[in-house]
Design a binder for these strands. Structure first.
Lengths: 181, 181
DNA sequence: TGGCCCATGTAAGCGGTTACATGATTGA
DNA sequence: TCAATCATGTAACCGCTTACATGGGCCA
């Protein structure tokens, strides 16, 4: 499991509330590890219990109270332990591939349309990543340390989305060609 | 959820026992949708309850009895329904990216080593996919229908693994360069 | 003798998803 | 007036992971 660790990494970059973390997981870190607010609140509670983070209650007026979470020493130890630990390389889990594989068991044209739809979503994500890359990392050769690491993760997103777009294009070309015959 | 659907697709290609399906999910279809034998047995039971598959008990001597599963009509209807249904494009969930992003919170060299290890695993998977491609699909332009669809899914695996290998190489080059400075 | 193959399962626990709930402030 | 934002939560359910269990046949 890595949600705890993703939260720890994010909180070390900057302390925040559960709500704020949920928003971060809607972008940046969330591009590589998605999580909903319910998941985050529950996990934060557990992490307080483990002593990995501390939650400081902050009263606000005109707004609901909030709890600002910070990484505690035990959390820093845990991150370091996890970073050095060997993990399983990702196994793919790609529903669309299962649909393509089974396309002839139903309406092939519907599956083709679905591939086209996914293609567009991935193309949009790719554009978004490329825009961030241009805006935040105009000179990648000058990067070092944490900034370099952030850049490299973004590069992974670019590569993944590009691969997905290109695969969808290959599938569309082949299936349309097959349909024509 | 798509495990049911992956099983239906696999059983339509060829009926099989839970054990056999578990082995299929250890390769071919399993490259794109992993599942353990416990998951498969439980899901098959549920699917019998739903009327999507039938399980024929077959006594064997010298070996445990087995149950041969086949897709029922209701299962065929369900596959067709699912194929035409719009699904969410994959969101990435990549633990190694989270580690790279947090590398400076621990032993950077350990994370670099982890990336190198993953690189090798992905390179091996890529080679395995390419070997299957050469062996089973020597002339892709001649493919149609179900065989074409199988080929296209394999192409997705090739593209995904290649993208991962190349990303790992980019990360390794950049992090080693950063280390040298 | 030891380990792998065939073949199926139970049980416990965890993590993730979805629905529902509250309630004030701010801006269109 | 309506919707969005800030901010946190409960509850139910489902799926997935891991450990444990059984037991004969086959091959080195």
């Amino acid at each position: 499991m890595a949600l705890e660790h993703a939260i720890l990494v994010s909180l070390e970059e900057r302390p925040g509330t559960g709500y704020e973390l949920a928003r971060r997981f809607g972008k940046s870190i969330g591009f590589f590890w998605a999580a909903t607010h319910q998941q985050i609140y529950r996990t934060l509670k557990r992490m307080v219990g483990l002593g990995w983070v501390t939650g400081e209650e902050i009263a606000q007026d005109g707004r609901p109270d909030k709890r600002l979470y910070r990484v505690a020493d035990a959390g820093r130890v845990e991150v370091a332990r996890w970073l050095a630990e060997a993990g399983e390389p990702t196994t793919l889990r790609h529903e669309l591939s299962v649909k393509v594989r089974g396309a002839s068991l139903g309406d092939v044209a519907a599956v083709t349309a679905e591939v086209a739809r996914h293609r567009d979503v991935h193309a949009q994500r790719l554009d978004a990543f490329l825009a961030i890359e241009r805006r935040d990392f105009p000179d990648p050769t000058a990067l070092a340390g944490q900034r370099l690491h952030q850049y490299l993760v973004l590069r992974g997103g670019v590569r993944a989305e590009r691969a997905l777009v290109e695969w969808c294009d290959e599938v569309l070309a082949a299936m349309r060609e097959d349909d024509r015959r």
